[in-house]
Simulated assay, not measured.
Amino acid sequence: MKLNTLEFPDNLLYAPDHNLWLREETDATLTIGLSAYGCASYGQIFAFTPKRDGQVIEADRSFGIVEFAKAASSARSPIAGILIASNSEVVRRPALINQDCYGAGWMIRLQPNDWTSARQQLLTGDAALAAFAERMRLDGFNPDDNGVQALR
Rank of each mutant, 00 (worst) to 15 (best):
F68R: 03
R135F: 08
G64W: 03
S117N: 09
G125W: 09
K70W: 06
I57C: 06
L12W: 06
E24M: 15
V148S: 12
A40D: 05
F141R: 02
S35A: 08
L129Q: 05
A104L: 10
R152V: 13
A69C: 15
R109K: 11
E89I: 11
D17Y: 03
E134K: 12
L151T: 08
E7H: 11
A36E: 03
A80G: 15
D17W: 02
I65A: 05
T116N: 06
S88N: 07
P78Q: 14
F63V: 05
L83Y: 11
A71Q: 14
W106V: 04
Q120M: 12
D53G: 12
P143V: 09
I65E: 10
Y102M: 04
E25Y: 09
L34I: 14
A118Q: 13
E25H: 09
D53T: 15
P112C: 03
D27C: 14
F46W: 07
F63E: 04
D144N: 12
A133N: 03
D114V: 09
Q55H: 14
N113T: 12
T26P: 02
A95C: 08
D10W: 12
S62R: 11
P9M: 03
F8M: 05
F132M: 02
N146K: 15
L12N: 03
P112G: 03
A69P: 13
A133Y: 02
A133E: 00
I84N: 05
D60Q: 14
G54N: 06
E7W: 06
D53P: 14
A85E: 13
S117T: 13
L123A: 01
L110Q: 03
L151G: 08
H18C: 01
A72Y: 12
L3Y: 12
A104T: 11
Q120S: 10
N19C: 06
C101N: 08
S41L: 07
T116S: 08
G33L: 12
P9I: 03
R152L: 13
Y14T: 12
E25V: 05
L30V: 15
Q99S: 04
A150Q: 14
R76T: 14
L129N: 02
F8Y: 11
D27L: 14
D126V: 15
F132H: 02
W21R: 06
Y14H: 13
I79D: 00
K2N: 08
Y102F: 10
A40C: 02
D60C: 10
K2M: 11
S77L: 10
M136F: 09
G54F: 08
A118H: 13
D126Q: 06
N87F: 00
A85H: 11
L122T: 12
R61G: 01
F63W: 07
F46S: 04
L83K: 05
K70N: 15
